[in-house]
Simulated scan of single mutants.
Amino acid sequence: MFPQEFQRLIADVTAQLAGRPLDASLAAWLNANWPSSSDTYRKLADACRTGVSEGWLCNREHGGIRYGRIIKPTADTHGFSVDVVDMQDIAGPHHMHPNGEIDLIMPLTDSATFDGHPAGWCVYAPGSAHRPTVANGQALVLYLLPQGAIEFTQDASSA
C-alpha cells in the first residue's frame, strides 16, 4: 500500500458520500453498508495500519497523539480531506466541524471506543464540536472533513 493507492481507496468511499447530508441517517447508512465486518472496512483498516507502520500515516505527534493529514481536499476525493490519528486512552483537543465530520473507528485494542463508539462509523453534523476521546485502549480514527474544514477551539473543560 502506498499513499497513491490509499487515495484511490478513499476516493471510492468519498464518491458514495459526496452531496449527502452529514447527519444520523448517514451514520446509519455507513454502518449498514460498510460495517466493521465488511470488505470496505477491512481494506480501509488494513491500509491505515500499513500506513502507520510504514510511517506515511500518523507521522506527527503532540501530547501523546500521533496524527497527520494524508490527503488535502481535492476533486479526486470529492472535496474531503483525510486525517488519521492514533490515540490511546486520551482526549484530544477540542474542535468544531464547520461542515461536519465523518469518522471511521478502527480499534487496535478490541474494547477501544472513540467518543463512546466501537468499531465502525460515526458522523458529526455541521457546526458540531467535541474533544475526540479514545477510551478502553488504542484506536486509529480516520477523519473525512468536507473541504478540510476544522476549527480548534478552547472549551471550558480544557481551560
Rank of each mutant, 00 (worst) to 15 (best):
A28W: 01
G100N: 10
L22Q: 09
N31P: 04
A18T: 05
D115C: 14
N31E: 06
Y41E: 08
C48S: 06
A18G: 03
A159G: 05
R49D: 13
T50S: 07
I71Y: 03
R42I: 05
P93Q: 15
R20D: 04
E101M: 08
I102M: 02
S53K: 15
A75N: 11
H78F: 13
H95Q: 14
K72V: 14
D103C: 01
D89K: 07
G100P: 00
L57R: 02
A139H: 01
H97V: 09
D155Q: 04
S81K: 03
D155Y: 04
G63W: 07
L144K: 03
V141F: 09
V52S: 05
C122P: 02
C58T: 13
A24K: 05
R66S: 10
I71F: 10
S53A: 15
A47L: 06
E101L: 15
R131L: 13
M106N: 00
G127V: 13
D115P: 00
I105A: 01
G55R: 07
Q7R: 14
T14Q: 08
G79D: 09
M87A: 12
V82F: 09
H94F: 11
S37D: 06
Q4D: 10
I105C: 01
H78G: 03
A27C: 08
L26N: 05
F114W: 15
L104W: 02
D23I: 07
L57M: 15
E151S: 13
P3E: 14
V82W: 01
F6A: 11
T133F: 03
P3V: 14
F80K: 03
G68S: 05
S111H: 02
P35T: 07
A135F: 00
R66E: 11
D23K: 04
H130N: 09
S25V: 05
D76H: 02
V82I: 10
Y143F: 15
I10L: 11
A45P: 00
V85I: 14
H78M: 09
E61P: 00
Q16K: 14
D115L: 12
Y143Q: 06
P118K: 09
K43Q: 12
N31M: 10
D115E: 15
L30I: 06
A135L: 12
T50D: 13
N33R: 13
A156P: 00
W121G: 04
